[in-house]
């Protein structure tokens, strides 16, 4: 039996200790948000917060967690999800849970990021439907709702002199 703390609750699971956290979240704790996308740490669909840092849960063996706290989309405040809903920021939506979790990590650390910081921060997470513009709008909206805000517009391709 392995004990882990997810969304403030302790759980005991009977799995192989090398099982990546993702499979435990999905199959043992029946939490749907984190998704299997690549199992290689390349797409971010499985992103969860581990002691406030966004990590790929597909690569963290459950035995490695120790006392560290896991947060998934299910355990986050509703500000970001509400912003994603308000902006209709999803097409197929498979990547969205990971997007929200990664954005949460950004806004907890820095509620007033610049547009460029926001885009750089979100870079590890892939979206194939092309919902990026809406996702960025949703993060901006959530930042404002949290009393912060995305500070300046990105100067895409602008020549800095």
């Amino acid at each position: 039996m392995i004990t882990l703390t997810v969304n403030g609750q302790a759980h005991q699971v009977d799995v192989d200790p090398d099982t990546p956290l993702l499979y435990v979240l999905r199959n043992d704790l029946e939490l749907n948000a984190a998704k299997f996308g690549c199992g290689l740490g390349q797409c971010g669909a499985c992103t969860v917060l581990l002691d406030d840092k966004p990590v790929f849960s597909c690569l963290v063996p459950v035995a490695a967690l120790g006392a560290r706290k896991v947060r998934t989309l299910e355990g986050l405040p509703k500000t970001l999800p509400a912003a994603f809903e308000a902006e209709q920021a999803a097409q197929c939506g498979y990547c969205i849970a990971g997007m929200i979790v990664r954005a949460q990590a950004l806004l907890e650390r820095n509620p007033r990021p610049t547009e460029k910081e926001m885009r750089t921060h979100m870079a590890p997470n892939l979206c194939r439907c092309g919902t990026h513009m809406r996702i960025l709008r949703a993060v901006r909206r959530a930042a404002e709702a949290m009393g912060g805000g995305v500070r300046e517009e990105a100067r895409i391709g602008a020549e800095e002199k």
Binding site: D18, P20, G39, V60, P61, A63, A64
Partner: peptide, 14 residues
């Protein structure tokens, strides 16, 4: 032994 588990869960997939 503990690192062997880490390896199996975090490294072996690649």
């Amino acid at each position: 032994p503990e690192a062997a588990t880490l390896y199996a869960g975090a490294c072996a997939t690649c």
